[in-house]
Design a binder for these strands. Structure first.
Length: 577
RNA sequence: CGGGGCGUAGCUCAGCCUGGCUAGAGCGCCUGGUUUGGGACCAGGAAGUCGCAGGUUCGAAUCCUGUCGCCCCGACCA
């Protein structure tokens, strides 16, 4: 391709609304253009990279016997109502109606759709396992699109779905996919760490995320310093075992002492006011499981310096949400000043984090506005009935004071979620009635797995982790062009040579861009660095007079001189490498 | 959804507070010339519904009201 014939709108300045590095570079290098919040055009350069990423994904999916399909983005809402996800996704779903008034949605993912497909045609264990995948645009009406291509409303996603008649088969495919993911990210040339992950609203019981570590990322991951273990913060468990109730301190009976704490609801405020440490406080939060009528209250307690992990509470208690403040107040919870002993008088499930259990003579809310209590002890101040039903469980985020399962210290870092593999089980096949008959004519729900990758995020991850002050540095495998030919002046012998090299390299399957613009050399060099093509061949009069051209690796400081006679061979080798 | 900020030329922004000539600059773009190995220079030029609607006023980019769009922070740590 010739620069003058395509559309590569580079710019010296990034728009002010671009915040993170990858976003600035994507705009400046002319990869994308925003058309609306969280919706982007892919320009030729960006699209070339996306296609290369997708090609790698396809190859690795095909290699593990996954077969590509194309499913519609426009889906009947009814299908989603059957699995309950129409409600679960809520405002995140793009909803619309057709001319007849039928409710439709734009698919944010395709479990329902693909399960429906398999249900229609698969009925025997002999047809299983089967794995289908697709790469296409998905839609989510994000509350706040942000960070350029990182959180968008329309985006590409590769999602694969596997269907099985046994857990062994699911586990095998899960492992194949996991391995395929490792290969995909390696081939794309970007770092990706597999971490244990929460399966989230998608359901299921086991999952891993692949995280590209970088500051722009929205996820927090926890790793052992010796790399023996890594997990999403949502999922990361305390290294130490969970004790039972007998671990609570035994103390001589003491009265709860009320202390006035005017306007000090937050732990930090109380500590400042009373001059105590957060580690001596019990933080109590109220959650709600289910709706207003049939639901129940959940009271969760952690040590004052710890953060409650809602995902952990959900995992053990069901789909809880932080209580609506007004509703909780109406029920008698003095939000801001709740103490665990509230469960003596209000019927609620009590969940206690082990570290909160171990505090002796704790300070906590008095269940009365602007009052706290001290000398709180679990065994003394909870009624025996409540005490016998209380649950001790890990319900907090791990901290730097915790250890990995093998005892190693922990490192916390941010990262971009590139991909996610889940074992789904039968959530969707149950809901939609996707079943098979086994060899004894018994009917079972098909067991499923699902495996997603965000190709756009691979691109973002590459820019975030590999760029330098001059611009992008594409890994060879996903570079929009592998070679850029920069004639100092596109004229005379340089023009002849540029055209010939373009032809010869292209014939070898190499993607070549010739900068044929009538620009000063400085402009061409700056642009070449900005768009980050891995190899640059510079054609200057002096070199050509001696049968030499200059070869510059984007990631190296100095260029090398190569004879014109051998440049095609030389470059071909570098591209293949 | 809550809070904050911003919409003026393709891009970055000034002008607005305190209303008043024909709405400006830099980059980019077009023409001509000089240049040509790391974002050149000279001369000339094109390009703006000042987001949109309404209002106040003799007069609105500027003040008021509404509305749309965009960006940032927050949206569980009581």
């Amino acid at each position: 391709m010739y620069w003058s014939r395509t559309l590569i709108p580079t710019s010296r300045e990034a728009p002010t609304d671009a915040d993170i590095l990858s976003h600035k570079l994507m705009i400046r290098a002319g990869l994308i253009r925003r058309i609306s919040a969280g919706v982007y055009d892919w320009l030729p350069l960006g699209w070339r990279s996306m296609q290369k990423i997708n090609a790698i994904i396809r190859q690795e999916m095909n290699a593990v016997n996954a077969e590509e399909v194309h499913l519609p983005a426009l889906l009947p809402a009814e299908l989603w109502k059957q699995t309950g996800r129409y409600a679960d996704y809520g405002a995140l779903l793009f909803k619309l109606k057709d001319r007849k008034g039928t409710e439709m949605i734009l698919g944010p993912t395709h479990e329902e759709c693909v399960t429906e497909l398999v249900k229609a045609y698969v009925s025997s264990h002999k047809q299983l396992p089967v794995t289908l995948y697709q790469i296409q645009t998905k839609f989510r009406d994000e509350a706040r699109p942000r960070n350029g291509m990182l959180r968008v409303r329309e985006f590409f996603m590769k999602d694969a779905y596997s269907f099985h008649s046994s857990l062994e088969s699911l586990n095998q495919t899960y492992q194949d996919m996991y391995n395929a993911y490792v290969k995909i990210f390696q081939r794309c040339g970007i770092p990706a760490i597999p971490v244990e992950a929460e399966s989230g609203p998608i359901g299921g019981d086991a999952s891993h995320e692949f995280i590209c570590p970088c500051e722009a990322g929205e996820d927090v991951i926890v790793r052992a310093v010796d790399n023996s273990w890594a997990a999403n913060l949502e999922r990361a468990g305390r290294g130490a075992p969970v004790p039972d109730f007998s671990a609570a301190p035994e103390l001589p009976a003491a009265e709860l002492a009320k202390i006035k704490t005017p306007d000090a609801a937050a732990v930090d405020d109380v500590c400042k006011f009373l001059n105590i440490q957060p580690t001596t406080m019990i933080k109590t939060m109220v959650f709600r499981l289910g709706d207003a009528q049939s639901g129940k209250w959940i009271v969760a307690c952690v040590r004052g310096d710890h953060e409650i992990n809602e995902a952990k509470i959900r995992r053990m208690a069901g789909p809880v949400e932080l209580a609506d403040e007004a509703a909780a107040r109406a029920a008698g919870f003095v939000i801001g000043y709740v103490g665990p002993h509230i469960v003596n008088t209000i019927n609620a499930e009590l969940i206690i984090d082990p570290d909160a259990l171990l505090i002796a003579n704790a300070t906590t809310g008095a269940n009365e506005s602007h009052w706290h209590v001290t000398n709180f002890n679990w065994k003394q101040h909870l009624s025996p009935n409540v005490l016998s039903k209380a649950i001790i469980a890990d319900i907090r985020n791990v901290t730097a004071a915790d250890k990995a399962p093998n005892g190693a210290d922990l490192i916390f870092s941010k990262g971009i979620e590139l991909g996610h593999v889940f074992k789904l089980g039968t959530k969707y096949s149950d809901a939609l009635g996707a079943t098979y008959s086994d060899d004894k004519q018994q009917t079972h729900s098909i067991i499923m797995g699902c495996y997603g990758i965000g190709p756009g995020r691979i691109l973002v991850g590459a820019l975030e982790t590999l760029s330098d002050a001059d611009g992008i540095r594409w890994p060879m495998a996903i570079a929009p062009f592998q070679v850029i030919i920069t004639p100092i002046k596109y004229d005379g012998q340089a023009k002849e040579v540029a055209d010939r090299l373009h032809k010869e390299l292209s014939a070898r399957g190499i993607d070549v861009l010739v900068d044929d613009r009538d620009q000063r050399p400085g402009v061409k060099f700056k642009d070449a660095d900005l768009i980050g093509i891995p190899l640059r061949i510079v054609l200057g009069d002096k070199g050509l007079a001696n049968g030499q051209v200059e070869l510059k690796d984007r990631s190296k400081k100095e260029p090398e001189m190569v004879s014109l006679a051998s440049i095609v061979e030389h470059v071909s080798k570098l591209v293949q490498a």
